[in-house]
Design a protein around this nucleic acid. Structure first.
Ligand SMILES: [Mn+2]
Ligand SMILES: [Mn+2]
Ligand SMILES: [Zn+2]
Ligand SMILES: [Zn+2]
Lengths: 139, 139
DNA sequence: CTCTTAATTTAGAATTATTCTAATATTAGA
DNA sequence: TCTAATATTAGAATAATTCTAAATTAAGAG
């Protein structure tokens, strides 16, 4: 049984992850990474800015975008847009998965790949690199 | 064997379709609808504006957007965005289908539903209203 | 420590897709 | 032919994101 990490331990863990990815762990980057990786769920840049405004002395919107770009480039985050929205969504779930968008609440839920079977039939022998699936409905 | 419709017949066909949908068939609307419904393939608003600039005496960008909105509202078109782009794509294929995005060319191809089996092993009994699938890769 | 340089952050301007506004033009139909 | 409703238009406004160039901070050599 592993103990729940203290706030300090969590911060150090994040810091190590940034280091390992070759990212200088500045205060802003640690804060954003911590929020995105441990608290947020499919946040947008605006979600992160809002959080930062309440939990960090001062952070510019440019830094939010800069940091997110770095995290995406180094493979710590993924980004995508939903078919009906124009905001980028950041996803910490790097493993292959799909999404369910609750029409009512706007909440976005992960669907593990084993819950949705996707089989190309008349196998056209395409080289498929990404499979984006968004189910929209209500629970 | 049905004859290929003349340009005039095609235009009248479009006009009738607008009428039936309760849309006043103005010159601009007929032109846009004709292009989108018979020539274009998954166009963006910008594609349509570019076409109009070359094939219609004068059309404002606002009219392009206004008309597209009307066509979507009346169910003649569908709209969506791809996960990596920020432009709306208009689709005349109203039947349930999926998309394949060719990474190399940027071309978007329809995938008929029978070519892709999507089975929710859904113990969760969700009410799914829309299924968006975009495969990204190369042919 | 203390410079010096490189990296990061920042405010605000720029960009892009889209929507809005309010004036003008066109249409329908009495 | 008039009138009212509808459609079109140019350009301003908006929203998400990126860019710019200056200020701040961090790293590392001495
Ligand atoms: Mn959100
Ligand atoms: Mn296009
Ligand atoms: Zn996810
Ligand atoms: Zn399509």
């Amino acid at each position: 049984m592993t103990k729940k990490p203290t706030a300090l331990e969590a911060r150090q863990e994040i810091e190590k992850r940034l280091q390992e990815a070759g990212i200088q762990p500045t205060a802003q980057r640690i804060a954003i990474a911590q929020y995105v990786l441990t608290d947020a769920d499919h946040p947008t840049a605006d979600d992160i800015k809002t959080w930062a405004d309440q939990n960090f002395p001062k952070m510019s919107l440019a830094t939010v975008y800069n940091t997110l770009k770095i995290l995406v480039q180094s493979g710590i985050l993924r980004e995508f847009k939903l078919p009906h929205s124009d905001r980028v969504i950041y996803d910490t779930n790097l493993s292959h998965h799909f999404h369910f968008l609750d029409e009512k609440t706007g909440a976005l839920h992960d669907i593990p790949p084993e819950e949705l079977e996707i089989k190309p039939r008349n196998s056209k022998n395409w080289d498929i690199r990404q499979v984006h699936v968004v189910l929209v409905g209500r629970k």
